[in-house]
């Protein structure tokens, strides 16, 4: 059987959970790209490339970082804002759209100002987002949402996960700390300054 790769969709109305298709989570110090385990630095470089070559690079901060419920969350917020600022300085179309909670909102969300895990595709379609990063979203909601995005959109997904990573994202990091997010900021800055960022669309 051909190895399942976690790639941008639209894949199917109900794409499989990548874990059920044999994709495993990285160990500490690793990440994955399209389901393939790689050293974390390689995942950093790839994420930086994807962000810089995107038309609408977007960060989706979730409740774990939107709210200042402990010092770590506060520091992560600062790091995420730094990432957004560097993306915005490169591409004025960069977006920062919150996922403030997970409730099914009625009758529907305003896709201009938020993303909801139950229908993330609305926000992605509306804003024509082609690369996004989840950060601070609880595991179950992130997995579900990443799967829906893969199923119904062509958006490239990155997960900056504080736990063990996400099989359902195209690039995943694990054990996210404020320092790790800042490392990604540095990777983006380095690549941007090297001028290589305009023709860096990775191969899917």
């Amino acid at each position: 059987m051909e190895k399942y790769r976690v790639l941008p969709g639209p894949e199917a109305f109900l794409p499989p959970a990548a874990a059920c298709a044999g994709v495993v989570l990285p160990d500490p110090g690793q990440g994955h790209i399209h389901g393939e385990i790689v050293p974390e630095d390689a995942a950093m470089e790839e994420a930086a490339k994807r962000f810089l070559s995107a038309k609408v690079p977007t960060i989706f901060p979730g409740p774990l970082v939107l709210w200042g419920w402990n010092e770590n969350a506060e520091q992560k917020a600062t790091a995420i804002k730094a990432l957004y600022d560097v993306l915005k300085s490169h591409n004025n179309g960069a977006l920062l759209i919150p996922m403030p909670d997970y409730r099914p909102k009625y009758p529907k969300i305003d896709p201009e100002i938020e993303i909801n895990p139950n229908h993330p595709n609305l926000t992605i379609w509306h804003n024509k987002i082609d690369v996004c990063m989840f950060v601070g979203v609880h595991c179950h909601q992130a997995n579900m949402s990443l799967k829906i995005i893969r199923g119904g959109t062509s958006c490239y997904t990155i997960a900056m996960c504080a736990q063990a990573g996400h099989e359902d994202a195209m690039i995943t990091f694990r054990d996210a700390t404020p320092e790790k997010i800042m490392k990604l900021v540095d990777a983006v800055k380095r690549l941007k300054d090297s001028g290589a960022s305009n023709d860096v669309r990775g191969t899917a």
Partner: peptide, 16 residues
């Protein structure tokens, strides 16, 4: 416990 991080205050939906 319900402090919005200042970096994100302006992007939070108004109900929050």
């Amino acid at each position: 416990k319900i402090k919005i991080n200042p970096e994100f205050y302006d992007i939070m939906p108004v109900e929050y």
